[in-house]
């Protein structure tokens, strides 16, 4: 069952301890490794819980009734947690909780994971500088983390996660406090990452459709749609009340279809579509 090149989730159900509501309900899905998977859904749909299962927080730190099987490559977050944890990084919803709480400067905060893993000082210096540049935090390196704005704090949280060069990156709503420019920069940066399996929970449906290889839609703990963003957005049930990208709304209004009742969901598709319309 464990395909080395696949993420596979089979019959995954989960209920938190001392709780009667099933948070995740019989989820079956697979995707190739090193792809970007966008997870969307409304409040309390089970997005954060799914992330916790993928990161092994459930059942290693939070108990409950976990059924089914999850494999990322040949590793299982349940059984091989300590090995998997070395390759995985998680950005929590609340960036404040992401911080070690024990760093005087942004630079020390970013270095925390590397120190824990016994990386040598020269490598630490280089990686910290590198990651800070990617997250536009170079000017803040000597500041205290508590002096940062919400958006900067979220970028710091991401920086602490990517500094270890994880093979698997789980991002739980990483842009909620960023301004539009910061968010755009973040998604542009995310698209450039190679050789990393990325799970990203976000409400920024426009941005997700630009970069995600796959979208998974959760409604009340059930995985109701999975596939490319083009397939998923075109098959959304209005009852789920999930937002659609502006490109899609516009294309639908203008009847710019890609054929077979499929409307474009990102700029590239739209461009192709409008181009076709013109050449007709």
């Amino acid at each position: 069952m464990a395909n080395i090149q696949q993420i596979s989730i089979t019959h995954l159900s989960f209920t938190y301890q001392h709780d009667t509501n099933t948070v995740l309900h019989d989820i079956n899905v697979s995707a190739p490794l090193n792809s970007i998977i966008g997870i969307i859904g409304n409040h309390n749909a089970g997005k954060t819980t799914l992330c916790r299962v993928l990161a092994g927080i459930i059942p290693n730190m939070m108990g409950g009734d976990l059924l089914g099987d999850v494999h990322i490559g040949n590793l299982s977050p349940t059984k091989d947690w300590s090995v998997l944890n070395r390759q995985t990084d998680f950005v929590l919803q609340d960036p404040n909780s992401q911080l070690s709480g024990l760093a005087d400067t942004v630079a020390d905060e970013i270095a925390f994971d590397l120190l824990n893993h016994g990386v040598d000082e020269t490598t630490i210096q280089r990686r910290v500088a590198d990651v800070a540049a990617q997250m536009q935090l170079t000017a803040q390196l000597q500041q205290s983390p508590s002096s940062l704005s919400g958006g900067q704090l979220q970028r710091l949280a991401i920086a602490t996660a990517i500094v270890t060069k994880p093979g698997i990156l789980i991002l739980d709503d990483p842009t909620s406090e960023m301004d539009p420019q910061g968010r755009a920069d973040f998604f542009n940066w995310l698209a450039t990452i190679k050789d990393t399996t990325i799970f990203i929970v976000s409400n920024e449906i426009d941005d997700l459709c630009e970069i995600a290889d796959r979208l998974w839609v959760l409604v009340d703990g059930e995985l109701v749609r999975k596939g490319t963003s083009l397939e998923v957005i075109n098959q959304l049930n209005p009852e789920w009340q999930i937002g659609t990208p502006k490109v899609y709304q516009l294309a639908k209004l203008m009847y710019w279809s890609l054929g077979a009742d499929l409307f474009p969901v990102n700029i590239n598709q739209l461009r192709g579509c409008v181009h076709d319309q013109h050449s007709n």
């Binding site: 938190y16 301890q17 001392h18 709780d19 730190m61 939070m62 108990g63």
Partner: peptide
């Protein structure tokens, strides 16, 4: 919340 009590009890 019960989840909070459980978390500290389990860990």
């Amino acid at each position: 919340p019960q989840r909070m009590i459980n978390y500290f009890k389990d860990n």
